[in-house]
């Protein structure tokens, strides 16, 4: 199952990211994972949070543009070689990764992928024995 990532447009000027984190803090929203894509002219914040609907609502109210993007999250063991094993299966199934980021837990690491055609990619990877996390499972991490 893909999970909903919240993607937010950021104007390129000092303090914008902090304005975003302030809104989240004021609404008691915990960021589980975050990645910042930047160009010379604007940025996109991509993040996993507990309540995606609440998050996009409060962000839209605070004049941010926030949308959902489906991403696949896979658990791997936190040791050398495990990402390589995971990605071999992506390669074998010809799954195209647009971007990825990661966070590590106590024993496991969590890889977040934005892939082209997420539905079809996910099915191909299931056939390889890879099951992505659901939102509920992610909340338990």
């Amino acid at each position: 199952m893909s999970v909903k990532q919240v993607s937010v447009f950021l104007e390129n000027k000092p303090g914008t990211l902090n304005k975003l984190t302030k809104v989240l803090a004021d609404h008691d929203i915990n960021i589980r994972a975050l990645s910042l894509a930047d160009t010379s002219e604007f940025g996109i914040v991509r993040m996993l949070v507990g309540d995606v609907f609440k998050t996009t609502n409060v962000l839209n109210e605070a004049n941010f543009v926030a949308i959902f993007t489906p991403v696949l999250v896979y658990t791997i063991s936190d040791e050398a070689g495990s990402l390589d094993q995971l990605l071999q299966k992506f390669t074998e199934e010809n799954v195209n990764i647009e971007y990825m980021y990661a966070f590590a837990g106590k024993k496991k690491a969590y890889m977040i992928f934005k892939v082209s055609d997420p539905k079809a990619s996910e099915i191909k990877l299931i056939a390889r024995g890879l099951r992505s996390l659901t939102q509920e499972e992610l909340d338990e991490v």
Binding site: Q5, A37, T39, F42, N60, V65, I67
Partner: peptide
């Protein structure tokens, strides 16, 4: 001003629209 219609998660796509 960026709007929900214009925004996508894809950097290249936003640059192309611009």
């Amino acid at each position: 001003e960026m709007t929900a219609d214009m925004f996508t998660d894809n950097v290249g796509e936003i640059q192309a629209r611009k």
